[in-house]
Simulated assay, not measured.
Amino acid sequence: MKKILLITLISFGFAFNVQSQEFNNIPTSPDFELLADGWYKFQLEGTLFDVELKAGKLVKGNITWFDGSSYSGNLSGTQLSGKGTYVWPDKSRYEGAFKKHQRHGKGSLIAADGTKWSGKWKANKKNGKGKIFDVHGQVLEEGVWESDQLIADK
């Protein structure tokens, strides 16, 4: 079951809504270990794969889940890892770095309406320098975040 957390940040009279959703799990199969290194297209547990396998592990590619969510980028087995883009069914998306199936490093979370938070992430939370942009690309807020909380304005 997918959890949805709606965060509203008020800045300069503008509301910035971001859906911070969990990522879908990546199904796996013991048969992966039997496959030679290379690219494969297949369906497993309602999930479509167009991926590269090395030594029986997923390393990169495109994955689409039955709910319409998708991921394109690097993988480490059954975890999002490295650079990639995850798109939710409502078309909001995260573009950036992943570590152990979480947002971690530099990245941007773009809401379906075009508003955006861009900056540093740690363990799926805004952590470090970041900016909030409106739908026209104008900076609404800039500062330092810690565990999803703005702790210092620029």
Rank of each mutant, 00 (worst) to 15 (best):
L150K: 10
E22Y: 01
F66W: 00
Y94W: 14
K60G: 01
N17K: 07
T78D: 15
K83P: 02
W39H: 09
E22S: 12
P30M: 08
K122G: 02
V87D: 04
L150F: 03
G130V: 12
W121C: 02
N24S: 13
I151T: 08
W121Q: 08
Y86R: 08
G128Y: 00
K122D: 06
K129F: 07
G38H: 04
K60A: 06
Q19Y: 11
Q102W: 11
V144R: 08
L5A: 12
G114R: 05
G68T: 01
E52S: 12
F42N: 04
W145T: 02
L140K: 04
K91V: 09
K100W: 03
Y86M: 14
K41V: 08
L80Q: 12
M1Q: 07
F14L: 12
H101C: 13
K91D: 06
F23L: 15
Q102D: 04
V59G: 06
F32R: 06
G114V: 06
Q19F: 11
L48Y: 01
E52R: 15
R93M: 10
T85H: 03
K60Q: 14
D50H: 05
V139L: 04
N124G: 08
S72N: 12
L35I: 01
A36M: 03
S147C: 02
Q79C: 06
E95H: 10
E45M: 01
Q102V: 11
G107F: 01
K57P: 00
K2I: 03
S81M: 11
K54F: 02
R103S: 06
K60M: 11
I110T: 15
G46R: 03
S118N: 04
I151N: 03
I26E: 05
E141P: 00
V59W: 00
P30V: 05
F42A: 08
G105L: 03
G56D: 05
V139S: 09
I10S: 01
W88Y: 13
E142N: 07
D148M: 09
V87R: 15
E95D: 08
P30F: 04
F23H: 10
Q43S: 12
K126R: 15
W65R: 14
A55W: 03
S11H: 04
K2W: 05
Q149A: 09
F49E: 09
G114I: 09
F133I: 14
F12C: 10
V51T: 11
D134A: 01
G61Y: 03
L35E: 06
Q149F: 05
G119W: 04
I26Y: 07
P89H: 11
E141G: 00
S118A: 07
